[in-house]
Design a protein around this nucleic acid. Structure first.
Length: 139
DNA sequence: GCCAACGTTGGC
DNA sequence: GCCAACGTTGGC
């Protein structure tokens, strides 16, 4: 199983909206590298969902429920979508500043390639980020 | 194939 | 609102 980080502007489509919807077509990606990552996703892969611009934090986890298919928002063009469903909301969001401040996450692709909307995440980094998202005692 | 111009993303 | 990063486009 692979792990990914997918970005969304919450004003356009938030994780809360995904929870409300139950599942969604993750479409609108218009970058070749990001598209290729979508195509590499398999059903069951887990995605950290990051809110860009507003929030600037990892807020939840989604599960891939349908592998890549043609992006319905770009008929006759060579883009792809996957379908995802919410798995759970993090007890506390993990802000970008916290990701940047964690020395063990220095290799995170998302930090080095800040404009790439779909990036892969190593299993160990995925677990580190989940750990940061646990509610801390006394918080 | 190079490179300047331009548009978009996204943090600050 | 600004600006850096960077992907895309198009002229040559």
């Amino acid at each position: 199983m692979k792990h990914w980080l997918i970005k969304t502007e919450p004003k356009a489509y938030s994780f809360e909206q995904l929870v409300a919807d139950g599942r969604t077509s993750w479409d609108g990606v218009r970058n070749f590298e990001a598209r290729n990552h979508l195509r590499a996703m398999a059903v069951g892969d887990l995605c950290l969902v990051y809110h860009s611009n507003v929030g600037k934090a990892v807020v939840g986890i989604a599960r891939v429920t349908r592998a890549a298919y043609p992006d319905p928002t770009a008929p006759d063009e060579d883009w792809s979508s996957v379908e995802v469903a919410p798995l759970r909301t993090l007890a506390q969001p993990v802000p970008l500043a916290q990701l940047k401040a964690a020395p063990e996450l220095a290799g995170l692709t998302m930090l080095r390639r800040s404009r790439l909307s779909v990036t892969s995440v190593s299993t160990v980094d995925y677990q580190r980020i989940l750990h940061l998202g646990r509610r801390s005692l006394g918080a």
